[in-house]
């Protein structure tokens, strides 16, 4: 049995009521643990795209994929864990910050390519977009100043370069075998 690692699935689904519920229900029912799930529209009308991050070994990943395919509203599943991808989360961090600390925090933001989006005499709100570890890095550097509020999205991910999803014909491959 292979190691459990964080995996990312790109899941294309029909944009119909209840589909998110069905997908979430599948993960819950089969005890597949979701770290994050993000869903939004794609450029194709009627098709939504989910990015699901979860912890799973190789066999479990295959079963997740096969079980997702069993759902009538699921069009395409891509386990992009080992592919070249761009993965981003967005976080808003409200941090305690008095006049003397402001310069230092803004310098930190520069290092992380984050930016201040709101300010009041004793606090600063920072926006950062980037891979999960970069966001975590910023959070840990800011923690000593006193984080007052933190909100972040789940990851959205896309493969790099030429590989793209032909959503015009997004059907299950004819001779797909989950353990091939």
């Amino acid at each position: 049995m292979s190691q459990s690692v964080k995996r990312t699935f790109a899941v294309f689904v029909e944009d119909k009521p209840g589909v998110l519920n069905r997908v979430a229900s599948l993960f819950r029912r089969r005890s597949f643990n979701i770290d994050s799930l993000n869903v939004g529209a794609t450029h194709e009308p009627g098709v939504s795209r989910m990015t699901i991050v979860c912890e799973a070994d190789e066999d479990t990943a295959k079963r997740i994929e096969a079980n997702l395919y069993k759902m009538v509203n699921v069009l395409w599943v891509d386990d992009i864990t080992h592919k070249q991808t761009i993965s981003r989360v967005l976080a808003l961090i409200k941090v305690h910050c008095n006049r003397e600390q402001r310069d230092e925090i803004l310098r930190i933001c520069e290092v992380f390519r984050a930016r201040a989006v709101d300010m009041s005499p004793d606090r600063l709100t920072i926006e950062i977009t980037g891979p999960q570890d970069k966001v975590e890095g910023l959070v840990s550097v800011l923690r000593p100043f006193g984080i007052l509020e933190l909100v972040q999205t789940g990851a959205v991910a896309m493969t790099r370069g030429v590989e793209k999803h032909g959503l015009a014909h997004p059907t299950v491959p004819a001779s797909r075998s989950s353990a091939a």
Partner: peptide, 12 residues
């Protein structure tokens, strides 16, 4: 034809 439903598989 349901775009997300292909019940039949051909063995490899």
């Amino acid at each position: 034809v349901l775009p997300g439903y292909r019940p039949d598989y051909t063995p490899l």
